[in-house]
Every structure is written in structure tokens, then in C-alpha cells.
């Protein structure tokens, strides 16, 4: 378990991280979200022991990062922001260097390196120097470094930053595949990524935790969560709207789009978890409207994100 306890960081008089506390258990993938400059990277740097916190500490699997930094770091795999790698080394040399420091020797070291190369799809570039590699490969080399010793705790700072959609997908699959036996913290500002990978999300803004929940629960905070969006072939809304608004459990209904061919409506329930889709369907069928699409909104994460982080 990673326990972050009351971590605070001042840069000069500016408080970059303000009393953040949370725990991450094995099996969890914690998404660490926030606008740029919210303190994500600073927090991760403190957890990995790169910069000392001004207050508080992190305990990595029982080892305090301040009191027993070496023991704590042995259990961590860390992918820093921008995935830095020594440009003048080959991929193999670099992983060999990391494996040495991680305490592997002899045939075990070679086996570990080969296994990691395989896992991260780096076989074809094993003997290429890092500065000849594309951004996606560099990212994967750095990622390979972080999982080389099969750490119990993985801390990934924007692991898919700068990758193309296919590579993003690959990295996410790798992270998911490893998650059962590890506690993983990954920072991102991509909401779909959090949604696709994470089992839990913490949103920070101005150095403070403003939300800590599952992606679904966060989405439920959206104002459109549970609302029914409905597209009909061109219809006069004046007649339909009052009938929908009169339905039991419906709070309001409004037109959100209209042109010559289509009419798009959204119907909001009184309570978010009470389903109103069936009742809406009944009304529509009675009057034989031509339904083009009808679905229940799950909620929009970006809207929730903006509301929570005060980006209006």
C-alpha cells in the first residue's frame, strides 16, 4: 500500500501542494488528475523521494520515503514526466544499467532485460541508441525501466503523453494487465484515459484534493447524468414538450438542437438515479413519433472536471 500522509510542498512562499493525503492499495489504478500546474508532478516527485516534502511523508509498502529512502525506492517503479532516458546509450545498455542498480546479476539480469524488452515491444530496437528512437519508443524505454524489477508500486507521470492513439492503447493495456498485483498511481490530464484505465480518480486543483472517487461516481456528478437525450425526425416541439414535462419523475425537458430534418431534446429527471427512459418511450410510441436515437446520458467527465477544478 502507498500511504500519502499530509504532504505539503512550498516553493518559496508559493504552496504548490497543500496537505494531500490518500492511500492506494494493491489492485488499484489511481488516476491523478488536475489542470497543468495543479501539483500532480510535484506530489509524485515527493512520493518517489526526488524532492523532499515541506511537511508530511509517504509510506511505500511500510517503508517511509524520508526515513528509509533506499528500501522505499526499491519497491517503486517510476516513470518521470517526459520520460527522460540517456540519449547516448543503447536500449540494452540502459536497461542493463538499471538492472545492475536494481541488484540483478549474471544470467538473471539478461533474462530480466529480455523479458522486459518483450513486454514493452522493444525487441526491434534493442541495440539502437536512444537518441535515434521516436518519441513513442523513448516513452516505452523509460516505461520498461520502471517495470524492469517488477515493482509492487508503480508511479507513472503522464505515461501516454506524446504517443499516438495506437501506442496509447498499448500502454494502457500494459498498465491494466499489470494492475492485479500492483498499486499504480498514474497522472494524466486526459479524461478518457482516466476513464479507460483507472479504478479510482483523485482530482487536485491548486495543490488540494478536490475529488476522490471512482470514474463512474465522478461522472454521476455531471448535471446531465441520467438525462435522456432524444433525436426525432423533424417535429414541432411545442406540442411534445409539455407532454414530456408532465411525466412523473421528469424535472424539465428542453430543445438542445433543431434543424429542418431533426429535433434534439434533452429530458432531465428529478432524481438522477431514477430512470425515466421507459416513460419517455411510452409517450413517443403513443403518438408515433419517428425516433432516430434515444439514450441515457452517463454524464460528461470534462464537465465535472471543469466544475470541480473551477475552470468554469
Amino acid at each position: 500500500m502507498i500511504e500519502v500522509k499530509n504532504m505539503t510542498k512550498f516553493f518559496g512562499i508559493k504552496k504548490a501542494v497543500d496537505d494531500i493525503s490518500f492511500n492506494v492499495a494493491k489492485g488499484e489504478i489511481l488516476g491523478f488528475l488536475g489542470p497543468n500546474g495543479a501539483g500532480k508532478s510535484t506530489t509524485m516527485r515527493m512520493i518517489t523521494g526526488f524532492i523532499p516534502p515541506s511537511g508530511g511523508t509517504a509510506i511505500i509498502g511500510g517503508s517511509d520515503i524520508l526515513q528509509h529512502p533506499i528500501a522505499a525506492r526499491e519497491k517503486i517503479g517510476y516513470l518521470p514526466e517526459n520520460a527522460p532516458v540517456y540519449p547516448d546509450m543503447t536500449v540494452f545498455e540502459y536497461l542493463d544499467f538499471c538492472a545492475q542498480i536494481r541488484g540483478f546479476s549474471g544470467t538473471k539480469r539478461t533474462a530480466k532485460i529480455e523479458e522486459t524488452l518483450e513486454k514493452c515491444f522493444l525487441n526491434e530496437v534493442t541495440y539502437q541508441t536512444v537518441n535515434t528512437l521516436s518519441k513513442g519508443f523513448k516513452q516505452r524505454v523509460c516505461f520498461a525501466q520502471s517495470i524492469l524489477h517488477d515493482p509492487e508500486y508503480l508511479i507513472l507521470d503522464e505515461p501516454t503523453d506524446g504517443l499516438d492513439p495506437n501506442q496509447k492503447h498499448e500502454v494502457r493495456m500494459m498498465i491494466k494487465a499489470m494492475s492485479a498485483r500492483k498499486a499504480i498511481i498514474l497522472s494524466t490530464h486526459i479524461l478518457e484515459e482516466m476513464d479507460a484505465v483507472c479504478t479510482r480518480a483523485i482530482i487536485i486543483a491548486d495543490g488540494v484534493v478536490v475529488a476522490d472517487d471512482t470514474p463512474d461516481a465522478l461522472r454521476a456528478q455531471s448535471s446531465v447524468h441520467g438525462a435522456v437525450s432524444l433525436t426525432l425526425a423533424a417535429t414541432d416541439p411545442q406540442e411534445l414538450l409539455p407532454r414530456l414535462q408532465a411525466l412523473e419523475g421528469v424535472q424539465s425537458a428542453s430543445v438542445i438542437g433543431q434543424d429542418n430534418q431533426h429535433l434534439t431534446l434533452r429530458i432531465y429527471p428529478e432524481q438522477k438515479d431514477v430512470l425515466i427512459a421507459a416513460k419517455v418511450m411510452d409517450v413517443l410510441q403513443d403518438s408515433a413519433y419517428k425516433i432516430e436515437s434515444l439514450f441515457v446520458e452517463q454524464g460528461k467527465l470534462d464537465e465535472v472536471f471543469r466544475t470541480i477544478t473551477g475552470g468554469g
Binding site: 516527485r45 518517489t48 523521494g49 526526488f50 533506499i70 528500501a71 525506492r73 526499491e74 517503486i76 517510476y78 518521470p80 514526466e81 517526459n82 527522460p84 532516458v85 540517456y86 540519449p87 538499471c98 542498480i101 536494481r102 523509460c142 525501466q145
Partner: peptide, 14 residues
Amino acid sequence: RLGTIELILTLPVR
């Protein structure tokens, strides 16, 4: 400059 300082100083080395 490369940012590798962050890697080297978060490895389990003094």
C-alpha cells in the same frame, strides 16, 4: 537538462 537526474536520484542508490 535531460531530466535524467530525476531517474537516477529515484533509483535505490544513495
